[in-house]
Write a protein that binds this DNA or RNA. Structure first.
Lengths: 348, 348
DNA sequence: CTGAAAGCGCTTACAG
DNA sequence: CTGAAAGCGCTTACAG
């Protein structure tokens, strides 16, 4: 446990002042080539790395951003972090993540604990309203919200167009000649689930069809159960639109368990395009969200807010899900191609 | 952009010295109840939160740990972070993640950039040997390695028993009456892949059987291609052990594409137990690693090293994968149960 | 129990 | 171009 070298050690070895060392290392201010060389030699010799805490104390910049996450499912989570992290590294920032926040208080505590540790925050907690956030934020840290739906339009945010995505999914099914399209919804209190349900109902009504929905909770088991319920209901559906892919996967398995053919008897469409979607047989038609890309954009916007706090960025940015047609909803039989994923058909 | 309140502001409002404020907030030292009350009132009123950078500068504790990750696939990544984060929060630590490091230099740079920002590191980069690590670490930060295989036994580490896991997987197949068990391996340079290959070969030789392996790269596409190659080879296998689940999934799809029945004609076993494994049809037998749990243990050990740097923890901890028998390797037909995952059969 | 003061490791005007 | 010094916001002996 050797004490790490400090700027003073480097200055001593190089025979210069700490100010000069600092100038060499930060790149700010003029230094002669000779000085630079001696400083660098000392830095190497002592394998000196500036203490970022001390640096951030004098510059009041931490070069870190905090990420507050709810309890997310696998793929979504990792894709998001990947996108955020790559963009962060590119911009010279570190990522401090705090995940699995199921309650508003937990998330608020996490936000508070990040004070002095980060230059900005990306918040995904659907439990925190803008009000609470502003309260927790004393100090005026820049915040970018990704709170799916319940977001005050005045605050910088990136949201998914859940309503539009659901609408497009149902339109696709109707265009395939399906008329009894049922919906398996997400948790009632979830804003994203609500928007998807609304988009579904809107598309049905626009087509003069009657909406029928069963509630789920975003899990595969719920999708399975809901699908069974639909199959044994009064009017058997010829298509199912599930509010997310995991429930769609459950529905697919339920159809299989009941010997109902998909897509011939019942077509299925999900939402998210998690990797499993392409691996199921039949592969799953879904509304794709490019998660990593969305993360990248989020981080870049946050950094923009940090660097230029003056230019007020109060816009809400919308991510539009993209229809990916696969076997589960296709009238033409898509053969699994070469061996990897069946070629997705992208509808613009 | 209001300037956050400092300890001085709080002291001023409460009419006490900054020392007293600090004592109240850190809980160290004695203070009268009256003082405490006045300080807390001021803290509330100013919504003061101590600046962690300043605090860490004087205490030389950051209460953060760094996590260095390679470019991991979805499920593994998020499960690991989840386990780490939960344990971190429990212990009062923050998590700084740096992911997607494909090269040793990148990882080394990430480690260096964490100096003064973290109290310890968890490193998963398979590209960094203990040597390099020690070099990057000037300052003697505690480090816990999870470098799957190529780890100096002298350093604190947690590793998966890849050899033993592969051995158990193959033994299971042989016990099911399979004799032409082929292997689809991971990347040659990957230490984990090597250990699994060795475990496979060992099990085959022990049983007097001839090992046959094809190389893959851990992707589903590679598993698909490798399986096709095996099917059209001279001796068609009656079982396939893939070095990870994604390749096993590819193999499963290849069998399906070729009209080969699984498990009747060819049984398949994977490694990892990613969620997709249970969702495939047939569901995939695999060697399960409890990733989140492993992450939790890793973090707790690191915190132990941070808190007591004296008690030398130089042990290598081994995580034993667990056989989960599902449809893809079972002679008895496992019916998909209730609707969720088929009940996994845990073999101890 | 409380306060004045030094010090943690850096950066940055300010002189020179 | 370079150095002495103040200051970033905290904690912690040291007196009292």
């Amino acid at each position: 446990m050797v004490k790490p070298a400090t700027i003073r050690d480097v200055a001593g070895r190089a025979g210069v002042s700490v100010a000069s060392v600092s100038r060499v290392l930060t790149g700010a201010g003029q230094v002669t080539e000779a000085t630079r060389a001696r400083v660098m030699e000392a830095v190497e010799a002592l394998s000196y790395v500036p203490h970022s805490g001390a640096r951030s104390l004098s510059t009041s910049k931490t070069h870190s951003v905090g990420v507050i996450l709810p309890d997310l499912f696998g793929e979504f989570f990792s894709e998001l972090i990947r996108g955020l992290d790559l963009a962060a590294r590119h911009a010279g920032y570190h990522l401090i993540v705090s995940s699995s926040h199921d309650h508003a208080e937990e998330a608020a505590a996490a936000i508070r604990s990040m004070r002095g540790r980060v230059d900005g925050l990306i918040v995904l907690s659907p439990h925190l309203d803008a009000e609470k956030l502003a309260g927790s934020l004393a100090g005026g840290l820049p915040v970018l919200l990704m709170n799916g739906g319940a977001v005050d339009a005045k605050r910088p945010s990136i949201v998914v167009d859940n309503h539009g995505g659901a609408f497009a999914a149902v339109q696709h099914l109707i265009a395939q000649g399906r008329s009894r399209v049922a919906h398996i919804g997400g948790p009632l209190h979830n804003a994203e689930a609500q928007a998807r349900l609304a988009g579904y109902e809107r598309a049905m009504r626009d087509a003069g069809l009657k909406p029928v929905s069963v509630q789920g909770d975003f899990t595969q088991a719920a999708g399975h159960a809901a699908c069974l319920a639909l199959l044994s209901g009064p009017t058997r559906p010829d298509a199912v639109f599930a509010a997310n892919d995991m429930m769609a996967v459950g529905a697919l398995l339920a159809l299989q368990d009941r010997g109902v053919r998909c897509p011939e008897d019942v077509a299925v469409v999900g939402f998210d395009d998690v990797p499993i979607a392409a691996l199921m047989r039949p592969s799953l038609t879904t509304m794709r969200i490019n998660i990593a890309e969305t993360g990248r954009r989020a981080l870049e916007r946050l950094v923009g807010m940090i660097d230029g706090p003056d230019r007020t960025d109060a816009s809400r940015e919308v991510v539009t899900p993209e229809l990916v047609v696969r076997q589960s909803s296709s009238t033409v039989v898509l053969k699994p191609s070469g061996g990897t994923r069946p070629e997705p058909v992208l509808a613009s």
